[in-house]
């Protein structure tokens, strides 16, 4: 087995003076989908933010494809091929759907753009009719799809997904699950923070459970349900 795509060892993170993560360690291999489970407030979102450099953090090792990223700012990490889908979608409400996409578009590290609009719309058919729609005028489910699409046009190798099922209708969750399975099949690596265990089971190979900022358990996804609190 080659070196993991994402390698985290001994990650601490803080919100202001309050420490939120304590020595977290995990890996994501190429083509693998990994779930971060645990209660809200346990540190799942913080873990993703810490990888993106959106919170103050320190780690023994924080590496992407073997290269250290612990000292890099957010935009450099994004340019190294990390796509981020934040917890509350954070669509630019003032910009149209197409402008949202356009702002995020940049070739991958190999210089290729693998996500022309047609391919995006094939993945999320709902978006095809909304090109000129202002982000703020889209429904929660549509925004969630746009948030994933926006991350994809940056041609990432690793996708960080934060609670894509939170606050959206169960029917949207089903569509999202199908789309994510398709993405995984193309070889994209995924780190998914999610409370919805059913979704994780559909998508992920392995899981880590975070309890109060510390790693509580890790193992194959199939065994995760047994460890539930």
């Amino acid at each position: 087995m080659s070196a993991p795509l994402l390698e985290i060892d001994g990650l601490d993170a803080w919100y202001g003076p309050a420490q939120a993560l304590f020595g977290l360690s995990l890996t994501v291999a190429r083509g693998e989908a990994v779930a971060l489970i645990g209660r809200n407030g346990a540190g799942k979102s913080t873990s993703l933010k810490a990888v993106m450099g959106l919170v103050r953090r320190r780690a023994r090792r924080l590496a992407l494809d073997g290269a250290d990223i612990s000292a890099l700012t957010t935009h450099r990490i994004a340019r190294l091929g990390v796509g981020y889908v934040p917890e509350d979608r954070r669509i630019f409400t003032d910009l149209t759907m197409e402008e949202n996409i356009g702002l995020a578009r940049r070739p991958g590290r190999d210089g290729a753009d693998r996500w022309p609009l047609e391919r995006l719309f094939a993945l999320f058919p709902n978006l095809a009719d909304l090109r000129g729609r202002r982000g703020g005028a889209m429904s929660g489910g549509e925004q969630q799809m746009l948030a994933v699409a926006r991350a994809l046009v940056g041609n990432p190798e690793l996708l960080l997904l934060d609670e894509p099922s939170e606050g959206v209708a169960p029917i949207i969750v089903e569509q999202m699950t199908a789309a994510l399975r398709e993405l995984k099949a193309t070889g994209l690596s995924i780190l998914l923070s999610e409370q919805n265990v059913a979704l994780c089971e559909e998508l992920c190979d392995r899981a880590y459970r975070i309890d109060q900022g510390e790693l509580g358990w890790s193992g194959p996804m199939a065994a995760a349900r047994l460890t539930a609190d």
Partner: peptide, 13 residues
């Protein structure tokens, strides 16, 4: 709203 599976109330960790 509910979709196929959620009507069984499956959600949680």
């Amino acid at each position: 709203y509910l979709g196929r599976s959620a009507a069984t109330g499956e959600r949680g960790s």
